[in-house]
Design a protein around this nucleic acid. Structure first.
Length: 376
RNA sequence: GGGGGGAUACCAGAGCGGUCAAAUGGGGCAGACUGUAAAUCUGCUGGCUUCGCCUUCGGAGGUUCGAAUCCUCCUCCCCCCA
């Protein structure tokens, strides 16, 4: 993996660059659709590539390990072969499940014991095991195994958790360095900054992560319920410490506004379930604002889903029709909304990149942020 | 012609003397969702000057301290026998 900076915004910390991987290039800033269980929910892989114009998607270590299982993934030759996505893939390590499945897991120094949400069986995830699994999945970018602490967390908890994540990181790196990719292409390992909402912890963690000189670095433990100002504050702080010549990935973020603001703070990569999950639940993000397509007001609005949209679904279908599909619980509704939202997210980060290259990013961003928050 | 059953809020359907503005579904309306246990979850769904009051359970009377619940008549619907 290689990262090259193309341009830096004169009025903010926004950057434009490119990440080269064995599965192709990723132009940053970028949004990465989430494909937890090996599919970007409700979308064909063709449309993820050709209509949404995604350049990289996610998979989840925990979910893919449980189903279909490593046996199948190794037999087929990795996730790319399995789901037909020919471009880069990033796998989350299961660190988020340490947070989201808190009722079903036990945390120890050695690792985390999960009780499967599928059949209740117990599974031990250690940093070493997670590296092995991510090797088997064959992600181009592998995330380190971390603990994502909840918000709010007591200082002592956050501090101990951060140190645990650091110790786990060392074990991840050790395993990563002593194993080889399984399918003939390179894999990169991204460590994750933690430290909850405490400035001193975030500084300490960012410095520790930076010292590892990884090919890219991530900021985790954000967007877990803390006020957005706090998230921006932590992001800005961490970005000021992480190396400028490596991509920075803000994990799990976020709304279109969150993304634009974080790009301004120096973030290059994003992922979030919001465009797909909220899309499935009838929420559309557009350049003009937010639409709840299930609302009665769209009942007889026969205008295109998004007149300024870049996806084929935006012009193929009307708002009234899309509302009808949702009200009728037709599966096509969530498909159209997910497709639209992802195309919009990718359009948004693409525009951000264009404006960074042009040098008027900040001006454009401030204008967009106002529009994006409108409730249509 | 004879016998029986039933009419409850937008719909279906509980309730069968007070704790009923009335269970539960559905429908409708609105909200939530941030490294996906999510095609999920939550709230509201008679009116009002909303910690209380008013009008509602086919219609009209009646019994009772008190009626969606009991009685009488009326209207309409369904089933069975001829």
């Amino acid at each position: 993996m290689n990262f090259t900076l193309h341009q830096t915004d004169p009025h903010s910390n926004a950057r434009a660059g490119v990440i080269n991987t064995d599965h192709g290039d990723i132009f940053t800033p970028i949004f990465m659709p989430v494909g937890t269980a090996g599919s970007v929910k409700a979308l064909h892989i063709r449309d993820v590539a050709e209509d949404v114009h995604a350049q990289i998607i996610l998979g989840n270590t925990y979910h893919l390990y449980l189903r279909p299982g490593l046996d199948i993934l190794e037999q087929v030759g990795g996730l790319h072969k399995f789901n037909g996505w020919r471009y880069p893939i990033l796998t989350d390590s299961g660190g988020y499940q340490v947070y989201s499945l808190t009722e079903r897991r036990k945390l120890k120094e050695e690792g985390v014991t999960f009780q499967s949400h599928i059949d209740g069986s117990k599974h031990l995830f250690t940093p070493e095991r997670v590296m092995d699994i991510e090797r088997s999945i064959g992600a181009d970018i592998m995330m380190a195994f971390d603990e994502c602490p909840p918000y709010p967390s007591e200082y002592e908890y956050a501090k101990n958790s951060m140190h645990l994540t650091h110790r786990w990181l060392d074990r991840c790196i050790e395993r990563f360095n002593t194993t080889e990719p399984k399918y003939g292409y390179k894999q990169a390992l991204f460590p994750i900054v933690q430290g909850s909402t405490y400035r001193d912890l975030r500084i300490q963690s960012a410095e520790y992560i930076a010292s590892k000189e990884a090919e890219g670095n991530a900021i985790g433990g954000v967007a877990v319920g803390e006020p957005v100002e706090m998230m921006y504050e932590m992001t800005e702080l961490v970005c000021s410490i992480l190396p400028k010549d490596r991509p920075r990935y803000l994990m799990g973020v976020g709304t279109p506004v969150n993304i634009l603001e974080s790009i301004a703070l120096g973030v290059d990569m994003f992922d979030c379930v919001m465009p797909t999950r909220n899309g499935r639940n009838g929420m559309l993000f557009t350049s003009q604002g937010i639409i709840n397509i299930k609302n009665e007001k769209w009942k007889n609005d026969f205008s295109p889903v998004d007149e300024k949209g870049v996806s084929f679904v935006d012009h193929q279908y009307s708002k009234a029709y899309l509302r009808h599909l949702f009200i009728s619980k037709e599966i096509l509704g969530p498909m159209i909304a997910s497709n639209h939202n992802l195309a919009f997210y990718l359009w948004l980060v693409g525009e951000a990149r264009n404006h960074i290259m042009q040098g008027d990013f900040t001006e454009w961003k401030n204008k967009m942020v106002k529009q994006l928050q409108v409730r249509l």
